[in-house]
Write a protein that binds this DNA or RNA. Structure first.
Length: 178
DNA sequence: CGTTTTTGACCTGCGC
DNA sequence: GCGCAGGTCAAAAACG
């Protein structure tokens, strides 16, 4: 049985990270069904949002989908409502499925997705005690798009030297320029 | 030989 | 309750 902590965003690993900075990360509700407006910038489990990633010149480069609908169970259980960590997904145009974000991941599952000819892969961070998960999925709608969803926060620093999110963003921009 | 991947089974929530 | 879909487990295989 999995235990989940308080909802906290994926920890930016570098001060250069632009993905979640105030200037470039502007969540807006996708579904207004359960949207609550808290100033923390965090989403509730029932919430979804879209955000844009801007480059250094303020030009939108990517659109981020945050959270997903219908993936929580109703909090009908008496006392312990299960709190899951929010998921942060970003979709991008890429030739490769596996984006090197500097962490080491162990694949623990792969599932076929309905209405999608590509399967979804499940990964867990291999650092001891760090149970951050991510899943990677390619859309059959547009084979050029890869969706990577992160769940949880790393309890450690990136293992690889000089690797951080900025590096992936740079990689992504190379691909998205096609 | 330790680590990672593969892959079918298993579990759980949800709608009918 | 049953079936479906998503998510996870774990044993065996593959890998370096």
């Amino acid at each position: 049985m999995e235990e989940y902590g308080v909802p906290i965003p994926l920890q930016p690993s570098s001060s250069h990270l632009t993905l979640f900075s105030a200037n470039t990360f502007t969540p807006q509700p996708v579904s207004t069904k359960h949207h609550t407006n808290n100033s923390s910038g965090l989403l509730g489990w029932n919430e979804t949002a879209k955000a844009q990633v801007l480059d250094d010149h303020g030009v939108p480069r990517r659109e981020i989908l945050i959270g997903s609908e219908a993936e929580r169970k109703p909090a009908t259980k008496k006392r312990e409502k299960k709190v899951r960590t929010p998921r942060y997904a970003f979709q991008t145009r890429s030739q490769v499925d596996i984006l090197d974000d500097g962490y080491r991941w162990r694949k623990y599952g792969q599932k076929a997705v309905k209405n999608n000819k590509f399967s979804r892969s499940y990964y867990r961070c291999t650092y001891q005690g760090c149970n951050v998960k991510k899943q990677v999925q390619r859309l059959s709608k547009d084979e050029g798009i890869v969706v990577t969803t992160y769940e949880g926060m790393h309890t450690h620093l990136v293992g690889k030297s000089n690797d951080n999110f900025e590096r992936i963003l740079n990689q992504l921009q190379v691909y998205s320029s096609f």
